[in-house]
């Protein structure tokens, strides 16, 4: 009885504290995220150029279907996402596992080195990569010297290799970043669990599969969702490597780059740009839901 009576008080106490902890964040997000989002939702029903807009209903959605450039951007974005995210996260997990050995010599050196790429600024990164991957640049030179290829790879001028280069670049920049998440989560795992497992004779691989991975599940989910968002909103790399063109032949044009062009480069068409951005929203929401679902199922 006493417990039950206390129930209401506890709940109220919980509630007040709960709101107090989250209030500052919710206030800011409300003003600087939700309000602009609703605004852009409203804009997505407007048509017209620049400042002269009128209500267009679903005109922008119809325009999507008849826009070959949009279809191209959508398929490019999907290809980047499907290929790049698994490669990067797998690599990050392997590297983090290798680094999570206190006896490893040169551990902090490796960790620092692999994390370094994500501290570069956009400008540095694009200037560097363009020079390294030029037709007669250092990368082709090295590959030729090693007899891996016989003629230079046209990294930025061939539709296929341009996509490969973008994938290499994002993976270069963000693998270390994801690795740090895995590593810091691995270090939060209680060491005694490993000790116990070791005493029970479970192999290193078994400990990794049955202890590390399950304990890491929240973080893996986290990196999956953020990488999905990052890849579906891919902009920086393609914008800088292709001088904003998404070339060759629109083969690296992504949805975000197309939104940017519609907003800032082309005749301003904010309504249509907002509609394209909601396509990304729908895609990410669906994928995130799938990922949450997939990781929850095994509980």
């Amino acid at each position: 009885m006493a417990v039950l009576q206390a129930g209401g008080g506890v709940r109220r106490y919980y509630n007040i504290n709960g709101w107090l902890f989250v209030a500052p964040a919710l206030g800011l997000i409300g003003v600087f995220m939700v309000y602009p989002i609703l605004w852009s939702l409203w804009m997505s029903f407007q048509t017209g150029k620049g400042l002269t807009t009128k209500f267009g209903g679903f005109a922008n959605i119809i325009r999507l279907w008849n826009d070959p450039v949009f279809i191209k951007a959508l398929s490019n974005t999907t290809i980047f996402f499907v290929i790049q995210v698994p490669i990067m996260l797998f690599l990050a997990l392997i590297v983090a596992a290798a680094l999570n050995n206190p006896k490893l010599w040169g551990r902090s050196f490796f960790r620092t080195a692999i994390f370094l790429p994500c501290v570069t600024s956009l400008v540095a990164y694009s200037v560097l990569f363009k020079s390294m991957f030029a037709a007669d640049g250092v990368v082709n030179g090295a590959l030729q010297a090693l007899h891996i290829i016989s003629s230079p790879i046209p990294w930025l001028t061939d539709p296929f290799w341009a996509k490969v280069l973008i994938i290499i670049a994002i993976t270069w920049r963000w693998t270390g970043y994801n690795m740090i998440f895995y590593l810091s989560a691995m270090q939060n795992i209680d060491k005694s669990i490993y000790e116990a497992a070791r005493i029970d004779g479970i192999s290193a691989r078994g400990r990794f599969l049955y202890i590390t991975i399950p304990m890491l599940k929240p973080v893996i989910l986290f990196t999956m969702v953020t990488s999905t968002i990052g890849t579906l909103q891919l902009f920086d790399e393609v914008y800088n490597f292709t001088e904003g063109k998404g070339g060759p032949s629109n083969e690296t044009l992504t949805l975000s780059l197309y939104i940017y062009n519609l907003t800032f480069k082309f005749m301003p068409s904010f309504g249509y740009a907002a509609t394209v951005s909601y396509v990304i929203v729908v895609m990410v929401a669906l994928l995130a839901f799938l990922q949450f679902y997939a990781t929850r199922e095994r509980d």
Binding site: I29, V31, F32, M33, V34, Y35, P36, I37, W39, S40, M43, V225, T226, I229, Q233, F235, L255, S256, I259, Y260, T263, F270, A273, A274, S277, Y278, I280, V281, V284, A285, A288
Partner: peptide, 17 residues
């Protein structure tokens, strides 16, 4: 869900605010 909105789409409303 707010994470899913590309920033380019929010820039103009934010700028007006």
């Amino acid at each position: 869900l707010t994470l899913f909105i590309p920033f380019a789409a929010l820039m103009i409303p934010l700028f007006i605010i």
